[in-house]
Amino acid sequence: MGAYTFHISNPILPIKLLESNATVDELIEGESKTWKKDLVQAIFRQEEAKCICNIPISIKGMDDKVIWGLSDKGLFSVKSAYFTDLEKIKHKTGETSNSDQNERIWRKVWRLTSSGKVKQFLWKALNGIPPTRSNLFKRMVVDNSTCPICNREEETALHVLWDCPASVDVWSEEFSPVKKWRRNYADFMSVWSDFHSKLEDEKLHIIATMLHCLWRRRNDLVFEGKFKGPSVLFQLALQGVEAIKLAQEKPRESQLRTTDSLRILWRPPRLEFMKVYVDAALDTK
C-alpha cells in the first residue's frame, strides 16, 4: 500500500472510538474488505479521510508482508539502496555546473589512450578509494595512517600521488608537463581537474601513466622493500606510453595493408568471363 503520514484531526476523539493499541484492520470491514468510511471520517481530516478511503484493499485476504518499495520486485538490494541514496544526494545538492564539468572529466578519463589498468586506477583515485593507509586505517586494517614513504603525513590519494616529497621529486623531473605546478590542492579530484583543463591529450596520457607508476612504486616499497628513483620512474612512464602507442598503431597499419592488398589483387573479370569463388577442404587420409 505504501507509506503515508496522516494527521488526526482530534487527538482525543480516536481514544473514544478505538482502543489505544488499535491497528489499521479495525478501520476495514472484515467481510466486504472495504473501508469503514464513517469511522475514518470521524478520526481524520476530510482530505486525509478521502485519501485513505481511496487506497485499494486486497480482497484475497493475504497476510501482510514487508516489501522494499524502491525496487520493481519489492525485494531489498544494496544496488537499489545505493542508487536511491545517490538520487537523494542529487536532489539535496541540486544540479550545478559542477555536474557538467565532472561528466566531461569522466568522459575524458575513459577516452584516454592509456591501458585499462591505468584507467581503472584513475577511477579509484578520483573516487578516493585506493587502499591508502588513510582508508585502511578508517577500516581498522592497519594501526596508523602515516605515509610509508615519507613517514610524515597521512597517506591519502592526494598525498601519495602529488604532495609526498618523493612524488614531488618525480613531478619536478626535466620533461615533466607539470614541473612547477602548485601544491595546495584540496583533494585529488581538484588536481585532475586542473590536468584536464590545462593539458593536451598527449601530456594527459603521460600524466595518467605516471600516476599509475607512482602507485606501483608505493606498493613495491610496502610489499617488496624496493624503491625506484624519480628519473627511473619517469622513464618507465614514458616507455609505457610509447608501448601503448605502438600497440594501438600496429593493428591499424596491418588493417590498412590488408585492405590495400585486397584492392590491388582483385580485378573485375572481362565481359566474356565470370568469376566464381569456391572453398574446399582436403582430407589427407
Rank of each mutant, 00 (worst) to 15 (best):
Lys117Asn: 13
His91Thr: 06
Phe175Cys: 08
Cys150Glu: 08
Arg133His: 12
Leu136Pro: 04
Leu161Glu: 07
Gly94Phe: 11
Thr84Lys: 11
Arg133Pro: 00
Trp123Gly: 04
Lys119Gly: 11
Phe83Pro: 01
Glu155Gln: 08
Glu154Asn: 05
Leu136Ile: 05
Asp64Cys: 02
Phe175Lys: 13
Lys108Ala: 14
Ala166Tyr: 12
Ala125Asp: 07
His91Trp: 13
Ala157Gly: 13
Val66Ile: 14
Pro131Ser: 04
Trp106Asp: 10
Asn102Leu: 14
Ser80Met: 05
Cys147Tyr: 09
Trp171Thr: 08
Lys92Val: 00
Asp64His: 06
Ser77Pro: 04
Ser77Ile: 03
Lys79His: 10
Lys124Ala: 13
Thr93Pro: 00
Leu112Trp: 07
Ser80Thr: 15
Ile89Tyr: 03
Pro131Tyr: 04
Pro165Ile: 02
Val142Cys: 10
Leu86His: 01
Leu86Ala: 03
Asp72Pro: 01
Gln120Val: 10
Lys50Val: 05
Val78Pro: 00
Ile149Trp: 12
Ile52Ser: 01
Ser58Val: 00
Thr113Phe: 05
Pro148Val: 02
Glu173Lys: 04
Ser58Asn: 14
Asn135Ile: 09
His159Met: 04
Asp72Val: 06
Val141Arg: 02
Asn102Trp: 15
Met62Ile: 05
Arg139Asn: 05
Ile55Pro: 00
Ala49Met: 05
Ser58Gly: 07
Ala81Met: 11
His159Cys: 04
Leu161Ala: 01
Arg139Thr: 04
Trp123Val: 07
Gly116Thr: 13
Ala157Leu: 00
Gln101Lys: 13
Gly74Arg: 03
Cys164Asn: 02
His159Gln: 07
Leu126Pro: 05
Arg111His: 12
Arg107Met: 08
Ala81Val: 07
Leu70Ile: 04
Pro56Thr: 01
Phe137Ser: 10
Asn102Asp: 14
Gln101Pro: 00
Asn144Met: 03
Ile67Lys: 08
His159Asp: 08
Pro130Ser: 02
Glu103Asn: 10
Asn135His: 03
Met62Cys: 03
Lys88Met: 12
Asn54His: 07
Phe83Asn: 08
Arg139Trp: 06
Asp63Val: 03
Glu48Tyr: 03
Thr113Glu: 13
Asn54Arg: 04
Ala125Ser: 15
Thr132Asn: 03
Lys79Ile: 02
Ile67Leu: 13
Lys50Leu: 10
Thr96Lys: 09
Gly128Lys: 04
Thr156Lys: 01
Arg104Ile: 07
Cys150Tyr: 05
Phe175Thr: 08
Tyr82Thr: 06
Val66Cys: 10
Trp106Gly: 10
Lys117Ile: 09
Asn102Gln: 12
Ser58Glu: 13
Asn54Glu: 15
Gly74Tyr: 02
Asp143Gly: 03
Ser80Asn: 07
Met62Lys: 07
Cys147Thr: 06
Asp63Glu: 11
Trp68Leu: 10
Ile105Val: 15
Cys51Leu: 11
Phe121Ile: 10
Trp171Asp: 09
Leu112Gly: 12
Lys90Ile: 02
Ile57Arg: 00
Lys124Leu: 14
Lys79Asp: 09
Leu112Pro: 08
Arg111Cys: 11
Ile105Gln: 05
Ala125Tyr: 06
Thr93Arg: 15
Ile149Asp: 06
Asp63Ile: 01
Phe175Leu: 14
Trp162Asp: 06
Phe76Pro: 05
Val142His: 01
Leu112Glu: 06
Ile89Arg: 15
Cys53Gln: 02
Lys117Ala: 09
Asp169Arg: 12
Ser115Tyr: 01
Leu126Gln: 04
Gly128Ile: 09
Lys65Ile: 09
Ile57Trp: 00
Asp85Ile: 11
